[in-house]
Simulated scan of single mutants.
Amino acid sequence: MQDEVPEIRLEEHGSKGRYVIVGPNGAEAEMTFTRAGEHQLIIHHTGVPDAFRGQGVGARLVTRAVEDARAGGRKIVPLCPFAAAQFRRHPEWGDVLA
């Protein structure tokens, strides 16, 4: 049983980046993105390994991107089907939806 899900780490390299959670067994859940200019983030992939399934890890990754977009005055383009579904479930995120 999972005691606590590790913190989300942001990694950026130029215009590309990812939000990642590394589990105690080394499994990585990630959401990858590309920055499009100063004010837009394009989410193109969310991957959650079986070790994290059913724990809301994918939703946590998208939520973190939304929080960071709000704080930075950015908009998000959710090309990833999972991220797009999360935006449909959370109309309150409309302020950061491009």
Rank of each mutant, 00 (worst) to 15 (best):
G73I: 03
H39L: 05
E38Q: 11
G73M: 06
G56D: 06
V62N: 06
A36I: 15
I8C: 04
P24S: 11
R18T: 03
R89Y: 01
L41R: 15
E30Y: 10
C80R: 12
G26N: 10
L79K: 02
C80T: 09
W93A: 02
F33D: 03
R9C: 01
E7D: 14
G94C: 04
W93K: 12
T46F: 05
R64V: 01
T46D: 02
Q2K: 05
K16T: 15
V20R: 09
R9D: 00
I21D: 03
V62F: 01
E4H: 04
E11S: 06
H13C: 03
P81T: 01
G58Y: 03
R35D: 13
E28Y: 01
R70D: 00
I42P: 10
I76E: 02
D3E: 13
Y19P: 05
Q86G: 07
D95L: 07
L97P: 02
E92P: 04
E12F: 05
V77P: 00
R88Q: 14
D95T: 09
I42G: 03
P78G: 12
T63W: 10
D3M: 12
G26A: 11
G14T: 04
V96A: 03
T63N: 12
V5W: 10
W93Y: 14
A71H: 08
H39N: 13
G94K: 15
A84S: 11
V20A: 13
M31R: 14
D68F: 04
D95F: 07
F87E: 06
K75Y: 10
E4P: 00
V48T: 08
V96D: 00
R18F: 00
Q2P: 15
A59M: 05
D50T: 13
F33I: 05
F33A: 01
G26S: 11
M31Q: 15
H13F: 11
A65C: 13
P6D: 00
V5G: 05
R89K: 15
T34C: 07
V62H: 03
G47W: 00
F33H: 07
G23A: 13
Q86I: 02
G94V: 09
E12A: 12
H13T: 11
V66D: 01
L79T: 10
Q86T: 02
L10K: 14
F87I: 09
E12R: 13
A29H: 12
P78F: 05
A83H: 05
I76V: 06
E12S: 08
D68T: 04
V62Q: 07
L79F: 13
V5Q: 06
G47Y: 00
G72N: 14
K16A: 15
E38H: 07
R60H: 02
C80F: 02
T34H: 12
V20G: 08
R9S: 02
G54W: 04
G47S: 12
R53G: 08
L10G: 00
L10C: 01
A84Y: 06
E7C: 00
E92I: 03
H39W: 01
D95C: 10
R74G: 00
V77N: 07
V57H: 09
L79Y: 12
I21W: 07
V57I: 14
A98V: 13
H13M: 10
Q86K: 15
A71S: 14
F82C: 11
G54I: 06
V77T: 11
H90R: 14
P49D: 03
V66N: 02
N25R: 11
R88Y: 10
